[in-house]
């Protein structure tokens, strides 16, 4: 499906009020079905995440609850990789949230660019001591929105849900790229990288 700038904007304007508030409600266990049912054209966003037992199940539940389509990603087997390629192929025109270990996200990014726009990359690494370092590079607006959630999310699964909800944001392609480094409490599991990618033509 290809989406023109204007129809995309209309869609976003209609849905952006759901924004990043939605996932927190989800994570707090508040029923979000009523809100989610307000959202139309949910097929316009997609979440890809690494099939990792440590974070996978919760994440799937979360993104399902806010009505996003999702697909797990793996480096390890042809069938999984192949399914991801099919998904990406059919996802033209959708926005994407990606979360996984660095190598996996590197590989996904390699399949996206240059025909998609990666509006934000976040590198989330455990520091010595009990800190988590988040290094963001990309557009200011999503970066700032995400920054506000870092200390509020408990684990990668919750972060994924916040990230996935950002695919509904509206960002300007002309905005300058920036970087932002922040610390938060430690999340369980390994170092991660996240991406927000927008369809070319929308950004």
């Amino acid at each position: 499906m290809s989406i023109t700038l204007s129809s995309r904007r209309t869609f976003l304007q209609a849905t952006v009020r759901g924004g990043a508030a939605l996932p927190l409600l989800t994570s707090l266990g508040v029923a979000t079905n009523a809100i989610a049912s307000d959202l139309t054209e949910t097929e316009n966003s997609l979440c890809l995440f690494e099939a990792d037992a440590a974070m996978g199940a919760d994440m799937a539940a979360g993104v399902r609850q806010i009505g996003l389509a999702y697909q797990t990603v793996t480096l390890d087997d042809a069938a999984g990789w192949s399914a991801m390629l099919d998904t990406l192929e059919s996802a033209r025109g959708r926005s994407l949230a990606v979360l996984g270990r660095p190598a996996t996200v590197f590989a996904v990014r390699g399949m996206l660019e240059p025909t998609w726009r990666v509006v934000l990359e976040g590198r989330h690494g455990r520091q010595v001591g009990s800190q988590m370092r988040h290094e963001f590079a990309g557009l200011d607006a999503p970066m700032k929105q995400l920054a506000g959630w870092l200390d509020r999310v408990r684990d990668p699964a919750q972060y994924a849900v916040v990230l996935a909800s950002m695919t509904r944001g509206e960002f300007s392609a002309d905005a300058e790229r920036k970087t932002l480094d922040l610390n938060s409490h430690v999340w369980p599991g390994s170092d991660l990288v996240s991406l927000l990618a927008w369809p070319k033509g929308v950004v």
């Binding site: 042809a78 990789w81 270990r101 660095p102 590197f106 170092d191």
Partner: peptide, 17 residues
């Protein structure tokens, strides 16, 4: 001859590998 990408994991060995 079954393609996969597992070996890319070597870049997870160190941060920003």
């Amino acid at each position: 001859g079954i393609p996969n990408m597992t070996e890319y994991n070597v870049m997870n060995w160190i941060p920003n590998g």
